[in-house]
Design a protein around this nucleic acid. Structure first.
Lengths: 208, 208
DNA sequence: CCATGCAGTTAACAACTGTTCTCTGGATTT
DNA sequence: AAATCCAGAGAACAGTTGTTAACTGCATGG
């Protein structure tokens, strides 16, 4: 059973989460490599030195943010790719799901898009690892589809990567369209849907 | 005729270029939003105040770097997409050309990949504008292909964006593989080629 | 109930930042 | 040849940064 953790550790995790939240907020207008430790603690309202009780450095905090932003996404991936229905339905559902996710967690999406190629190596590697996990999961889902008969493992993974990258691009476009008139968002939906459709067509006509 | 510019302006452009080069070097291990003005001038060997003779801020310098990194790429795009040969030949040639470009200008490629979603708004916009121009150019090239009969303008642009994004992803992967054993690079080549092939297949079976 | 652990505080450190003002010396113009 | 211009130097500014050390007070385990 889950042991109720003491008042002590509860407070600690509370301020830790406050640091993560404050950092995520500050990162909407800058990159991680320019995020100062004092800046974060100031936003939370704690002393600068309190930071060290939770993270070694801002890079360390960044790795924790990767976990928070992508770690909880794996179940969603599985259920999305594997939902029943014909190809067209699945595509529409996937794009909608991405749009809703960007609406719900815009700061998370922005952080991942920004730091995927950002200036902090450990964070880049953490994101790369998570995306590789995504690709592998998508691959196993694709492998279960009867359409995947005759596909080599390598080709399945190459297609999975195509889908994952496309997902990120689409999410980033939805993010840019957040402050725009709703027409923009619909345009992103149209384009993303058609791109996925084109990939899907290419898949069904693929000859290993 | 091109008027030979005086010793005065020649020196100025020389230090300006030195600032750009130094910045590009420093940006291999950080993002633009954490790049300090003093840091750049120190690397060049000039006084910090000299910076203002050339740029208003590091963000301004970043915009200039976008111009340098992407501005000279347009002719290459045109000749690549429009070279003769069947679809397969063009794909192989395109991937090779990307690989060579990453080899020749790794810092430029890294800068674009990093700052495309980076923390400095004017730079993001400059990159977005250039990529949009690329997409439009690719679109006009695609439109000339007989395979594009019956394609709407919207769908042509959607396909062009798919190609441009794919180009950037591939370039970024080649960049990561630069310090790795040559086997890595060949793997990137294989995957990128097949992804383009799949897109090409989807394109030939597309029904507007 | 008392001793220990530990999250968070306070104070201070040298180093660094962007920006302003003043100045200089050589190229440019007249 | 003299007057002007202007890229770059130099010094100083207030403000920021990461990191160390010694501390306080409260929840915890014996």
């Amino acid at each position: 059973m889950s042991h109720t953790l003491g008042v002590r550790q509860a407070q600690k995790q509370k301020t830790r989460q406050a640091l993560l939240d404050a950092a995520l907020g500050l990162l909407e207008e800058q990159s991680l490599s320019s995020l100062g430790l004092r800046e974060v603690t100031r936003a939370v309202g704690v002393a600068p030195t309190a930071f060290y009780r939770h993270f070694r450095s801002t890079a360390d905090l960044g790795v924790a943010l990767v976990e928070e932003a992508l770690g909880s996404l794996h179940p969603m991936i599985r259920t999305t790719v594997s939902t029943a229905g014909d190809s067209e339905e699945r595509i529409v559902r996937a794009v909608e799901l991405i749009a809703r996710h960007v609406d719900a967690f815009p700061a998370h999406v922005r952080f991942i898009a920004r730091e995927r190629h950002g200036g902090v190596q450990p964070v880049r590697e953490a994101i790369r690892d998570q995306l590789l996990r995504f690709a592998r999961e998508v691959k196993t889902e694709l492998a279960e589809d009867p359409e995947a008969d005759g596909w080599s493992d390598e080709d399945l993974l190459m297609l999975a990567h195509l889908y994952v990258d496309q997902m990120l691009i689409t999410a980033s476009l939805f993010l840019e369209a957040l402050d725009c008139p709703p027409g923009e968002r619909e345009q992103v939906t149209r384009t993303a849907t058609r791109q996925l459709r084109l990939i899907s067509i290419g898949r069904s006509h693929w000859t290993g």
